[in-house]
Nucleic acid binder design. Structure first.
Lengths: 145, 145
DNA sequence: CTCCTTGTAACTCGTAAGGTTACGTCCCAC
DNA sequence: GTGGGACGTAACCTTACGAGTTACAAGGAG
C-alpha cells in the first residue's frame, strides 16, 4: 500500500451512489456503500464527510437517514473530487531547510516550486476531463462485455 | 512531511554535482553533498545508489573516491530522475478487493486504471520538459537577483 | 420515546521515508 | 602490503499517515 486510495474510494462512492439512485433508492447509507467498496462504514463516512464539505453530497438524519448526491453527475469532475479530499501536493520539499549559504541550497526551492506547480496544473487538466457520469458509463460498458 | 521529498533531494543532488564539477572538483563525496542538502550522508548515498542504477552517476572508490555525473546535464530530464527513483504510482487502488457482485465494484478498477494512466502520462510529459541544466540555470539566475 | 444512522473521537496496525550508527568493501597512495 | 578515506548496505529508531475498528453522542422521523 504505497500510494493512497482515497481518490479511488471517493470516486467509487460517488459512482455507486449515482447508480443506486437510478435504481430507485432515495438515500444511501454508509453501511450499504461500504458493502460495495468492501471496507468499514466509518471509512466511508469519513470520505463522505470530505465530499460534504465540498458540497458534492448531503447527509440526512433521523429515521431513513443517509446520503444523497447533490449535483448532476455530468457536472462533477474528478478534479472536484480530488480537491474535496485536500490531499497534499504530489512532491514535497526538503524536510530540513537546505544550506542557505550554498547557491543550490538557497535557490532550489523556488525553482522546484515552479516545476511542481506545472505538474499539478497538468494533472488537474487531466482530472477535469472526466466526470462521475463518464466513469459510470465506462463501468457499465465493461459490465456488458 | 506529508509528501515525499525524494525527487526534490535527487534533483538537488544532481544540480549540486554539476555546479561542483564546474567549479573544478573532480568528484563529489556524499558528505559534501549532504552539507548542501542538510541531511545525513547515508541518505545521500541511498539516493545516489538509485541514480547509479539508472546510469546517471558513477561511484569511484579508493583514495579520492566519490561520485561523478556521467551524462550531459542538458540531456538529463526530470523524468529520467523520476524514473530512477521508481516511486509507486500517484494514486492507488482499493486496499481490499471491492465487491465483485456489484456492477461498480467489479468494473471500477479498469476504468480508474485508464484514468490514472492518463494522469501519469501528463505528468511525465511535464517532467520531460525540464533538464538538470535548466534547473541549474534557473537556480543561478535567482541567485543574482 | 424509539430506533436508525450520522458524525467524530480514540485507539491500533501496517507501511514508508528519513535519520542514525555500524561495519564490511574497495582501491589509490605511500 | 598496509593505511586511510569513502562507498555500500544492513539494522534500528522515529515520525507520519492512511486504514480499520470500537464506541458513543447527536439528530430527527415515526
Amino acid at each position: 500500500m504505497s500510494a493512497n486510495s482515497r481518490l479511488t474510494v471517493a470516486v467509487h462512492v460517488l459512482t455507486w451512489m449515482v447508480l443506486d439512485r437510478r435504481e430507485g433508492h432515495e438515500v444511501a447509507t454508509s453501511e450499504r456503500i461500504a458493502g460495495s467498496v468492501n471496507t468499514n462504514p466509518v471509512v466511508i463516512r469519513r470520505c463522505l464527510g470530505d465530499l460534504r464539505k465540498a458540497g458534492l453530497v448531503e447527509a440526512r438524519r433521523g429515521t431513513g437517514a443517509g446520503w444523497v448526491v447533490t449535483r448532476d453527475p455530468e457536472s462533477i469532475t474528478l478534479l472536484d473530487v480530488y480537491e474535496a479530499l485536500d490531499a497534499g501536493g504530489l512532491f514535497g520539499m526538503h524536510n530540513a531547510q537546505p544550506n542557505q549559504s550554498c547557491p543550490v541550497g538557497s535557490g532550489i526551492q523556488p525553482t522546484l516550486r515552479q516545476v511542481y506547480d506545472g505538474l499539478e496544473d497538468a494533472m488537474r487538466k487531466q482530472l477535469a476531463g472526466t466526470t462521475i457520469a463518464d466513469v459510470l458509463r465506462d463501468v457499465l460498458a465493461r459490465q456488458r462485455e
